[in-house]
């Protein structure tokens, strides 16, 4: 059943839904990616069950702050703290994971999901071999480059 799931579509649809309803920003997949992310924030969440893996969103600090400002309905980012920015990215990844989980529930069964974490960095290497990685370069509000990623494997 897992082979029949198009994880690219599942991940992108979930992210689009979250960005349109909770962040009020447009999100589109970039077909010819030129993603250069400096001073990145990586929000990630792990899951286990019929599938195990990690879902993440990586974007630069400026993009993360724009996301947080929009989520919170703030006029500017002048009062936004680093903690608030990380908290917002954690919530984003948590909600995208929720959307992925509900979309694949009937195929893989329930997944147990961790509490999200946000760190500075660019790489995601926490799973061993036999994992499959889905990476979607995206553009947010036609302004910010970011990247969605889903690293997974069938439970051993």
């Amino acid at each position: 059943m897992v082979e029949q799931i198009c994880f690219n579509t599942v991940l992108l649809d979930s992210a689009k839904e979250i960005f349109s309803t909770m962040v009020f920003m447009d999100l589109v997949e970039i077909t010819e990616p030129d993603v250069k992310i400096d001073r990145a924030l990586l929000g990630s969440i792990t899951f286990k069950g019929g599938l195990e893996g990690c879902l993440g969103i990586c974007c630069d600090v400026q993009c993360a702050r724009a996301i947080a400002v929009n989520m919170l309905g703030m006029d500017s980012d002048s009062e936004l703290t680093e903690e608030g920015t990380c908290d917002a990215i954690g919530e984003i990844v948590n909600m995208i994971m929720g959307g992925v989980k509900s979309r694949i529930l009937k195929d893989v069964g329930n997944l147990e999901v961790s509490i999200p974490s946000v760190v500075s960095g660019n790489n995601l290497n926490s799973l061993e071999h036999k994992s499959i990685r889905v990476t979607i370069p995206i553009n947010i509000d036609d302004k910010y480059a970011a990247e969605l990623s889903l690293l997974y494997r069938e439970s051993i």
């Binding site: 989520m71 919170l72 309905g73 608030g84 908290d87 917002a88 954690g90 919530e91 509490i115």
Partner: peptide, 13 residues
Amino acid sequence: DDSATMRKIIMRT
């Protein structure tokens, strides 16, 4: 909610 951001979003909603 453990997320202060989410508490604010819920309050706003």
